[in-house]
Structure formats: C-alpha cells, structure tokens
Design a protein around this nucleic acid. Structure first.
Length: 100
DNA sequence: TGTTTGACGGACA
DNA sequence: CTGTCCGCCAAAC
C-alpha cells in the first residue's frame, strides 16, 4: 500500500459521508482527507471510480458552486432528486454545503 | 523517462 | 461578471 492509496481511501470515505441533500466542494474533501492544497486530487480520484461504484460523487462540486464534472448532466439530475437545485447554473453553497 | 492534461482554488486584471 | 496566472501532482501520453 502506497501513500497515494491511503489518500484515495480517505477521499472515498469522506465522499461517502456527505449527507443526502447536501454537497461538498473538492477543496473541502481535500482538506478533510488530509491533503489541503491538492483539491485536484479529489477530482482525479473521483474520475477513476469504477463503473458500479456506490459513492455519491455527484455531491461534490467546485468552490464556485458550479458542476465541473464531465457528466454534469447526470450530476444535476441526481442532485435535483435530493432537492438540491441549481439557480442560474449555480448551487447556493450557503444553503447546501455540508458543514462537516 | 520527459511532457502535457485536468472533475481545483485562490489571487488578480 | 469573465478571463488569466500560478501552485499542485496523479494520469495519460
């Protein structure tokens, strides 16, 4: 097990912990996972999730409240199902950000 | 093995 | 508001 694998697991754990109806930013997850200043790693890890993963990857958005995922389409739909809606293409973090 | 990319974020123009 | 620049670093090439 390399250090990078440990980081991946930390990220998986924290993402899995995001409550339904709430969202977290890449930077937030990075800090929680112990890798502040490396938010890109979160995106990289989520991008490599295996196709049947149960992780709520759609609850992770960028600090601007926008969806930077390649599949922002599905992501928006999943979020809407939980009551998290975009207003003018943005999510109100003040209202929906998970306060871990 | 060297270089480029990118699901980020914050500072600045 | 939009756009650029930089630090960051695993993956992809």
């Amino acid at each position: 097990m390399t250090a990078i694998d440990d980081v991946k697991e930390e990220i998986w754990q924290w993402v899995a912990a995001i409550p339904p109806g709430k969202v977290a930013t890449y930077g937030q997850i990075a800090r929680l996972a112990g890798i502040p200043n490396k938010p890109r790693m979160v995106g990289t890890v989520l991008n490599h999730l295996p196709a049947g993963s149960k992780l709520p990857w759609f609850r992770v958005i960028n600090s601007a409240g926008r969806l930077s995922s390649p599949s922002a389409d599905r992501q928006q739909q999943h979020l809407a199902d939980e009551g998290v809606h975009l207003l003018n293409g943005r999510i109100n973090l003040k209202l929906y950000q998970w306060d871990a």
